[in-house]
C-alpha cells in the first residue's frame, strides 16, 4: 500500500515538521491577537512582509538571526498600525485586516522591485542549516527532529512559550481577559486597548517570523505570492485549535502532515492519473472541513471583534 510506505518513510515526517513551521509561528501569532479580542486578517500580508524583510536583511549582509529579528520588527510595525486602528479607534477588524494584508503585500513587492530593479532570477541567500545533521541518521524520527533548521525548533519553543505566558503569568491572564471580559480588565485599572495593541504587535511579529522561515530556511529566495494562502489557513487552524496553543500546534502538525502526504501521493502511479490541482486543493478544502467540524464546539473569546469603549457595554 503506497500510503503506508509514505507514512513510514522518514523524509515524510521530516517534511511534515518543516511544512508545519511557518504555520506554527503564524498560528500562535494569530491566537495571541484573537485571545486579546482582535481578529487579525493582516496575517497573509504580514507574512509576506516578514518573508521579504528577513530575506533582504540577510541579502544585505546581516546575520540570519538578525534577519529573523528584522522580520519580527517589521511585523510589529504593521501590528502597531492594526492595533491602533482597531483597538482605540475601533474600526472594523475585517476592513482594517484586509487593508493591512493588501498594504503589507504591496509594500513587500514594491520594496523588492525598488531594491532589485534589474533582476529576473530571484537571488539566493545562504539559508539556515540543519541543527544536527549527524543525528539525522536515526530511523524515522531522526530526520524529523534533527534535519530541521533552528527556526523549526524555535517554532515549537514559541508554541510552548505562548501557552506558558497566556495561562501561567499575570500578563497572559490580562491579555486573555481583554478578549473575554474587557470590563473586568478596565475595573482592575488596566488598559484594555493597551493590552490589545501589545498583543497584536507581538502576534504580528510572530506572523512575520513565520513568513521569514519561508525565505531564510525553506526557499532561500523571495517570490511574490510565496505565502500563498498560508495566513488564511492559520486563521482556520486557530479555530480548529479552539483558541488553545497546544491544540493549535497539533492542528498545524496534522495539516502539514496532510500537505506532505498529498505532495507524495502526486508522485505515486495512482496519483499520476489524477490532475495535480486536485492534490493542491486538498489542504484548502481540509481547512474548510476542519472549520465545519469544529463549528459546534468552537469557543471563541467572548469579546472577539468587539471594540472596547469605556463606559459602553
Amino acid at each position: 500500500m503506497e500510503i503506508l510506505d509514505i507514512l513510514l518513510s522518514a523524509t515524510f515526517w521530516a517534511a511534515a515538521v518543516r511544512i508545519a513551521t511557518p504555520l506554527i509561528f503564524a498560528t500562535m501569532g494569530e491566537l495571541i491577537c484573537e485571545r486579546a479580542g482582535v481578529l487579525n486578517l493582516g496575517i497573509e500580508g504580514i507574512m509576506a512582509m516578514g518573508a521579504f524583510t528577513g530575506w533582504i536583511a540577510v541579502y544585505a549582509g546581516a546575520d540570519l538571526w538578525a534577519g529573523v529579528g528584522a522580520a519580527f520588527l517589521a511585523g510589529m510595525l504593521f501590528g502597531l498600525l492594526h492595533g491602533v486602528l482597531t483597538a482605540p479607534f475601533g474600526l472594523s477588524q475585517h476592513v482594517v485586516g484586509l487593508g493591512i494584508t493588501l498594504l503589507a503585500s504591496a509594500v513587500a513587492a514594491f520594496a523588492y522591485r525598488v531594491s532589485l530593479p534589474q533582476v529576473t532570477n530571484p537571488p539566493k541567500i545562504e539559508p539556515f542549516q540543519a541543527v544536527a545533521p549527524a543525528l539525522a541518521d536515526f530511523p524515522i524520527l531522526g530526520p524529523a527532529l534533527f534535519a530541521q533548521t533552528p527556526l523549526t525548533w524555535a517554532a515549537f519553543a514559541v508554541a510552548g512559550l505562548t501557552a506558558f505566558v497566556l495561562w501561567r503569568t499575570p500578563l497572559g491572564l490580562a491579555v486573555r481577559a481583554a478578549g473575554e471580559s474587557p470590563e473586568a480588565v478596565a475595573a482592575q485599572g488596566l488598559s484594555v486597548n493597551g493590552l490589545r495593541i501589545g498583543a497584536v504587535m507581538v502576534g504580528s511579529g510572530l506572523m512575520a517570523v513565520g513568513g521569514a522561515f519561508l525565505t531564510l530556511s525553506a526557499f532561500s529566495s523571495f517570490f511574490f505570492e510565496m505565502v500563498n494562502g498560508r495566513g488564511w489557513v492559520c486563521i482556520a487552524l486557530v479555530v480548529f485549535g479552539a483558541w488553545r496553543p497546544g491544540k493549535a500546534l497539533l492542528g498545524a502538525l496534522l495539516f502539514a502532515a496532510f500537505d506532505a502526504l498529498q505532495v507524495r501521493l502526486q508522485q505515486t502511479p495512482m496519483g499520476a492519473d489524477i490532475p495535480y490541482q486536485i492534490f493542491l486543493m486538498a489542504p484548502y478544502a481540509l481547512s474548510i472541513l476542519a472549520l465545519v467540524v469544529m463549528s459546534r464546539r468552537a469557543a471563541a473569546p467572548a469579546a472577539l471583534m468587539i471594540p472596547w469603549r469605556k463606559g459602553e457595554r
Binding site: 489557513v233 486563521i235 463549528s295
Partner: peptide
C-alpha cells in the same frame, strides 16, 4: 446554520477556485 466564519471560507474558496480553473 453552523456559525462558520465566512471570511475564512470565502478566502480559502478563492484558492480552490483558481486551482479548479487551472485544472
Amino acid at each position: 446554520r453552523l456559525g462558520v466564519d465566512e471570511v475564512v471560507t470565502t478566502l480559502l474558496l478563492n484558492f480552490i477556485m483558481l486551482l479548479f480553473v487551472s485544472m
